[in-house]
């Protein structure tokens, strides 16, 4: 015998200071803000509260992108393509969506596509498209 169940619970996650600054800049200015690590000087994007490499606190905001380089990508049936990109000026990589890139090649140049309607989070970037093909 199987007992059917379904879990559907809305949640409200506090983004934290650096991610909130990142979200506000995306929403209001279509700019991508990383944060400079106070420990190792790397520019973190996405900017969490601390550096994943050295554990240092996230410091001053640094504008990065919107140009980027494709580091890795994957495509899933019915779910589109995902990518790891290195934003110009950032260290490390950002995981995001790949949009309208029929033949992705690692190393190719990409550009962030901003969403027309923006709410202040990572989805304000629709994804990364091929550089030079503007919409």
């Amino acid at each position: 015998m199987i007992v059917e169940g379904r879990v559907q619970i809305p949640f409200r996650y506090a983004a934290g200071a650096a991610a909130s600054r990142f979200g506000a800049a995306l929403r209001d200015e279509r700019r991508i803000l990383g944060a400079r690590c106070t420990g190792c000087d790397r520019v973190l994007c996405p900017p969490g509260p601390f550096c994943g490499s050295c554990g240092g606190a996230a410091g001053a905001a640094v504008e990065v992108g919107p140009g980027a380089t494709l580091l890795a990508w994957t495509e899933l049936p019915d779910r589109g393509a995902f990518a790891l990109v290195r934003l110009d000026g950032a260290d490390g990589a950002l995981a995001h969506r790949l949009v309208d890139v029929p033949e992705p090649r690692v190393g190719m140049r990409l550009r962030a596509r901003f969403a027309p309607e923006r709410g202040g989070d990572i989805r304000d970037i629709e994804g990364f498209g091929a550089e030079g093909i503007e919409r």
């Binding site: 949640f11 996650y13 983004a15 934290g16 991610a19 996405p46 969490g48 994957t74 899933l76 779910r79 995902f82 995981a95 995001h96 969506r97 989070d121 990572i122 989805r123």
Partner: peptide
């Protein structure tokens, strides 16, 4: 991560 990864639909398979 619910801030940067979940909203994009990134899971273990991705």
């Amino acid at each position: 991560d619910p801030v940067f990864l979940q909203p994009l639909g990134i899971d273990f398979l991705v």
